[in-house]
């Protein structure tokens, strides 16, 4: 950044010049003010999200049970939804993280350059598809196919609690919802991982190869240690997205109210997520049920804010380390 003040050669022994330098042109002052104002709007908006959600959500904390799907207390109501939200996000991450790291490796290290650029576009394309379209695809295309798989899982692996069944033939279970979420967070994790993998110092990689390492040994010994914190934060950003994703889950998942707290991934009795519950209930809600839904939205906001905050903090810290 160049120095911002107009630098003048110090005049021999006249004081007024200093005084003149400190006056700012009115145009400059207005422009600077606008820029600072715009930046402050962002702070105000973020604070506003927290404040308005709290103001409108507070009455929901003491609502009657029939506004909270029959739960006696808001804590019970929220915790059940948080369970479903976390479960769907965990399924999504378990599927998406290895796939994304693999994809990022292909783009940054395995594919020939001519292929890598179009592959990068494909990943961006995956990110560009609107969530409601994913929902439509999940419910009408993926769901019925998953239904067949679920029946097979129930027959052959039914002794594992996760696949206890009875299998939902429509396939509209938390497992399918998690899979759709996985496809949606994939481009986020891949984009960040690929950027970090590409930043690995070339010399480290070449040194490893020169010592006779195979390509995988090079990746394991030169690329991964360098990219570890980036991979962690990429996964956490994906987690943030998976927690807050609404429409795909609202459409794919067949659950109502607070859903069931269960580990069974393939049955018709599913947990529900916060975001999907809001999307489904809000358009018809009146009275205190609106406040209850806003309060649950506040819970979601706090969780995703914390996750994103942690992820960004890790990125910022590792960024400092790399610059040293």
């Amino acid at each position: 950044m160049p120095s911002t003040d107009t630098v003048k050669a110090p005049p021999p022994d006249r004081e007024p010049a200093v005084k003149k330098r400190s006056t700012e042109r009115p145009g400059d002052r207005i422009f600077r003010g606008t820029a600072v104002g715009a930046a402050t709007v962002i702070l105000v908006a973020l604070a506003g999200v927290a404040i308005f959600l709290t103001v409108e959500g507070l009455p929901g904390l003491t609502a009657e049970p029939d506004a909270m799907s029959g739960q006696a207390s808001f804590a019970g109501y929220a915790l059940r939804l948080v369970y479903g939200t976390l479960l769907a996000a965990v399924i999504a991450l378990v599927v998406a993280t290895p796939l994304s790291i693999g994809m990022a490796l292909v783009i940054s290290h395995y594919a020939p350059r001519r292929l890598a650029t179009p592959l990068g576009y494909v990943v961006d394309l995956l990110a560009a598809v609107p969530s409601v379209v994913y929902g439509l695809w999940g419910i009408l295309f993926l769901g019925p196919r998953m239904g067949d798989l679920f029946r097979w899982l129930e027959e052959n692996l039914g002794f594992i609690p996760l696949f206890a069944g009875p299998a939902a033939g429509s396939g509209r279970t938390i497992f399918t919802a998690g899979l759709v979420l996985a496809i949606m967070v994939l481009p986020i994790i891949t984009a960040i991982c690929r950027e970090i993998f590409a930043q690995t110092p070339k010399l480290h990689e070449e040194a490893a190869l020169a010592l006779g390492a195979t390509r995988w040994e090079m990746v394991r010994m030169a690329v991964f240690p360098y990219a570890r914190s980036g991979m962690v934060s990429a996964t956490m950003l994906g987690l943030g997205r998976a927690l807050g994703e609404t429409m795909a889950v609202a459409m794919v998942l067949a659950a109502s109210g607070t859903g069931f707290v269960t580990l069974n991934l393939i049955s018709t009795q599913n947990p529900n997520t916060i975001a999907a519950n809001i999307a489904r209930e809000f358009p018809e809600a009146t009275g205190t049920s609106v406040n209850v839904l806003i309060a649950s939205g506040l819970v979601l906001f706090v969780i995703t804010f914390a996750v994103n905050f942690a992820a960004r903090a890790i990125v910022a810290r590792s960024g400092k380390k790399m610059n040293r």
């Binding site: 962002i42 702070l43 839904l293 806003i294 979601l300 995703t304 994103n308």
Partner: peptide, 29 residues
Amino acid sequence: LARSITFLVDVMTGIPSIVAGLFAYALFV
């Protein structure tokens, strides 16, 4: 100020879209 705004803008990219909708509703109510 600039450093905290950079950080908050990053965090803001992660706001769930449904929370943004609830914020607009809570504001306009």
